[in-house]
Amino acid sequence: MTALDRAAHQGTGPVGTWPATAPVVVLHRASRSAAPLRALGVIGLLLALPVVALLTLWPSHLLLRVKPRVLSGLEWLHAREMFEWLYWTRLEVLANVAMFVPLALLLAFVLGARRWWVALGLSVAATVGIELTQHFMPGRVASVQDIVANSLGAVIGVVLAVSIEGVVRAARRRSHRTLVH
């Protein structure tokens, strides 16, 4: 417990007295609980962004190089009556959704849960930018379906980030209450 926390809990401080719920203490506590998530978000984005750039902006589509192997794997699964609902087009859509879940989640961690809408807007803008860039690249195909799938992934990522940050904040408040009382 810091000196400010002790002073706020005891109702005294360097300037006189203040209530135990002083805004300074609340803001101090909120920013400290979000710090590990922000650090995780920054590190995660530094690792994830180059991978996404490589997958989405490489001139020859990387997925087409592995497509024959993936198709043979799907055929193997289908022959054993497993994942019969999964085929190449559906897998590609799911991959687009999955790619933007961690990006939006990490971005929301960096910006904080209160700015979830900024993380979502930046994620949608990124997918639109990627698809516009792909439109002008030989061998790449831009699609509205990719924008929708990536945006759905961004929504899922932002919802997860807000939920995780809420759980972390609640756990911090509970642990702080047990330490103080």
Rank of each mutant, 00 (worst) to 15 (best):
Val110Ala: 14
Ala113Gln: 11
Leu120Thr: 09
Leu4Glu: 12
Arg65Glu: 11
Trp116Val: 03
Pro59Asp: 15
Val162Asp: 07
Arg174Thr: 12
Gly157Gln: 01
Ile43Cys: 12
His135Pro: 03
Ala79His: 14
Trp85Arg: 03
Ser31Arg: 10
Ala149Met: 08
Leu94Lys: 14
Thr12Cys: 12
Val26Lys: 13
Arg169Val: 06
Leu46Trp: 01
Ala20Cys: 03
Val25Phe: 10
Val24Lys: 02
Ala108Glu: 12
Thr17Phe: 12
Gly44Ser: 11
Leu46Gln: 06
Trp117Gln: 14
His181Cys: 15
Glu165Thr: 04
Arg173His: 13
Val51Asp: 11
Ile43Pro: 01
Gln10Ser: 13
Ile43Phe: 06
Phe100Gln: 09
His9Met: 13
Glu84Lys: 07
Leu27Arg: 06
Met137Thr: 14
Val42Gln: 00
Pro23Tyr: 13
Arg172Ala: 14
Gly16His: 07
Asn150Asp: 10
Gln134Met: 01
Val168Trp: 03
Trp58Glu: 11
Val93Trp: 07
Val97Ala: 05
Glu81Ser: 12
Ala154Gly: 00
Arg169Ser: 08
Leu106Ile: 00
Ala98Pro: 08
Ala125Cys: 11
Ile43Lys: 08
Gly121Ser: 15
Val158Asp: 06
Ile130Cys: 06
Leu91Trp: 05
Leu86Lys: 03
Trp116Ala: 11
Leu106Lys: 00
Thr2Cys: 04
Glu75Asn: 02
Pro102Ser: 03
Val162Ile: 10
Arg169Ala: 07
Val101Phe: 04
Leu74Phe: 04
Leu103Cys: 02
Ile147Tyr: 00
Asn96Lys: 05
Val158Ile: 14
His181Lys: 15
Leu152His: 02
Ser163Glu: 00
Leu94Tyr: 12
Val159Thr: 07
Arg177Pro: 09
Ala113Ile: 13
Arg32Asp: 01
Ser151Asn: 01
Arg6Gln: 15
Leu40Gln: 09
Met99Phe: 09
Leu64Val: 11
Pro23Gln: 05
Val141Thr: 05
Val101Asp: 00
Thr178Ala: 14
Leu45Ala: 07
Leu77Asn: 06
Ile130Tyr: 07
Glu75Asp: 09
His135Gln: 01
Met99Asn: 01
Arg65Met: 08
His78Ile: 01
Ser163Ala: 07
Met1Leu: 10
Leu111Gly: 09
Gly13Cys: 14
Leu105Ile: 10
Ala20Thr: 06
Ile164Val: 07
Pro59Met: 13
Val162Ala: 02
Thr178Pro: 01
Ser60Met: 10
Val70Trp: 12
Arg172Leu: 05
Asn96Val: 03
Pro102Asn: 06
Ala125Thr: 02
Met99Leu: 11
Ser33Ala: 14
Pro59His: 08
Asn150Tyr: 03
Gly11Gln: 11
Leu152Pro: 00
Leu57Gly: 02
